[in-house]
């Protein structure tokens, strides 16, 4: 059994557990990575992790709670994604381009997160290429998800969109209030409750 420095493990036990299960990493990799998650934060229900116009500097790991990623428009708030325990979340376009975010990330329930800065994350990817590979694999999965969703949005029948989401992510129906799922599926809450 590898011995991890007590502090890093104690500060981020959930993340430590998950990273130890990633076959790519050696115990040494995990030991180098964990201390970089320096910021710990609790976001009360309704508060924001990032607001429109801010420039994203962090990648977050959700330990508890639930959050939504949405685009505020004049008429409505369009949900584009949800995060819950064991999710990494960030306002991705802003993180990558370092321009003001168009998206907001809001806590749907009191949420506890830990964060690594973009600078620290970039640096460890340089120093230890395995983290570059890890990140690429996460991005690939996220891209596949986005493509699935793009297909969903082209389907004219709301029931079909719902069915695909139920098949892909049945757990979100337990974690996220229905009205946000309705927005994510581009239908009214009334339509969702009629076909659910």
């Amino acid at each position: 059994m590898p011995v991890f420095p007590k502090t890093a493990l104690n500060l981020t036990p959930m993340l430590a557990d998950l990273l130890q299960q990633v076959p790519l990493f050696t115990p040494d990799d995990v030991e180098a990575f964990l201390p970089l998650w320096k910021k710990r934060l609790t976001v009360p229900r309704g508060d924001f992790l990032i607001r429109e116009g801010q420039v994203e500097q962090h990648l977050y790991f959700v330990e508890s709670g639930a959050l939504r990623l949405y685009l505020p428009t004049a008429h409505e708030e369009i949900c584009v994604g949800f995060a819950y325990p064991n999710t990494l979340i960030t306002a991705f376009p802003s993180l990558v381009t370092q321009t003001p975010s168009q998206y907001c990330i809001q806590a749907l329930r009191r949420s506890e997160l830990v964060a690594i800065t973009k600078a620290d994350f970039d640096q460890i990817q340089e120093k230890r290429p395995i983290f570059g590979k890890f990140w690429r694999m996460e991005l690939e999965k996220a891209l596949v998800g986005k493509i699935e969703r793009e297909v969903d949005l082209q389907l004219p029948d709301p029931a079909q969109r719902l069915e695909r989401l139920l098949r892909r992510s049945p757990h979100i129906f337990q974690l996220v209030p229905r009205k946000y799922i309705a927005s994510y599926l581009r239908m009214t809450p009334e339509t969702l409750s009629r076909i659910m």
Binding site: D17, L18, Q21, V22, F61, F82, A83, T87, L88, I89
Partner: peptide, 10 residues
Amino acid sequence: KAQPTISLVV
């Protein structure tokens, strides 16, 4: 019960 895995939401 699900095995915990990381997923990225962007």
